[in-house]
Nucleic acid binder design. Structure first.
Lengths: 190, 190
DNA sequence: CGTGCACTTGATTGAAGTCAAGCGCTGTGG
DNA sequence: CCACAGCGCTTGACTTCAATCAAGTGCACG
């Protein structure tokens, strides 16, 4: 399954034998049971994660309440952006919602790869651009749309998530509370 | 002033003489009067822009109303992300709010630089990571905060913007309407 | 001058939040 | 094996924050 990642990146820029070996050598595979935290607030995020199978959520606390900032499904990359890039403790929690298998690579290993294999920067530049597109899309969605608009967008673009994730997390992801989401769903179905 | 950009990027990764020359050769400097559109909806964004002096805003139309998605000040990069990376017409407008000088580089020229100078990918990877941090910060801010929270954040983090930009644009940037912003400002000052 | 723009203020409405209760499962311990 | 505790979700009553509608002020500039 990590091989999928290699062939995926090869479509961006040819992955040399050397890079491939170094990448594999520095990657750890972890099998995590459901409800395992891989990051907590106050910790520094030292890894980039890739979901090979399963599902995770990222959230943070605001006035003691959990606000869900993203879900990561198969083939998604996970970076706790602020903490990882700035090398400082962050505010995010990341937790598996299902039994999950991830590949991870350490910040320091990644920096080595960037310096040793310049073409790896080409690949990660493109991956980061794609990540930015997703962030911008989420910004577009969150700004000035009604609660119903936001739910309908999710329903159209990622219906699978609605099957896999409890509605209370979906609600906070969409920036509304559980009761509001429940009423919207009732209105749409009825 | 473009030299500022070169030395800024040199701090990320050494810029070779060759890269520097190619970069300068492919960069155009434009002087734009106040109220000039550099991008309209339905157009494809073919350039990355860098603000050398002045100020611009990006916005889009939602139900006939302008929603302000960002402001770009000195040293900021401007990319209409969806349109530029996906090479398709976008929905954004970008307009100068003051007399402005920008440097721009064409998509195709950029791709050449990425292929010819692999180290340029190192630099742009880092710049893109920083851009992502900003997107994530805006996401964090927009989600589940009150109108007053959002205004106070801007007041603390970018007070200069409040001096340079009409409140109606600030309001839509903060996801509220002009009247609400006016009342919040009254409440805080009084 | 006067027209339009930037902003303020007031009255009212409406969307979503909060508080509270209840239903139907599932899983677990007595 | 049943009882009941807890979770996931729904529904109802009420509140609140911000949007909308509507004037009105001050000022720049053409």
């Amino acid at each position: 399954m990590l091989q999928d990642f290699i062939s995926y990146t090869s479509a961006i820029y040819p992955v040399s034998e050397g890079l491939q070996q170094d990448l594999l050598a520095r990657t750890e595979i972890l099998e995590l049971p459901r409800r395992t935290h891989v990051l907590r607030d106050g910790q520094r995020a030292d890894h980039v994660w890739m979901v090979l199978s399963g599902l995770l959520r990222a959230y943070y606390l605001k006035d003691g309440l959990e606000i869900c900032s993203s879900f990561m499904q198969e083939q998604h990359l996970i970076v706790s952006v602020n903490s990882f890039y700035n090398r400082q403790p962050g505010y995010e929690f990341i937790e598996t919602l299902e039994d999950t298998v991830v590949a991870r690579i350490h910040y320091d290993a990644l920096q080595e790869l960037y310096k040793k294999h310049l073409e790896f920067n080409y690949i990660v530049r493109v991956l980061t651009e794609r990540y930015t597109m997703l962030s911008e899309e989420r910004l577009f969605l969150l700004r000035k749309q009604t609660a119903e608009d936001r739910y309908l967008h999710l329903l159209n673009h990622d219906p699978e998530l609605l099957q896999r994730v409890p509605l209370k997390y979906i609600a906070s992801y969409l920036g509304m509370n559980l009761e509001t989401l429940s009423r919207i769903r009732k209105k749409i179905s009825g």
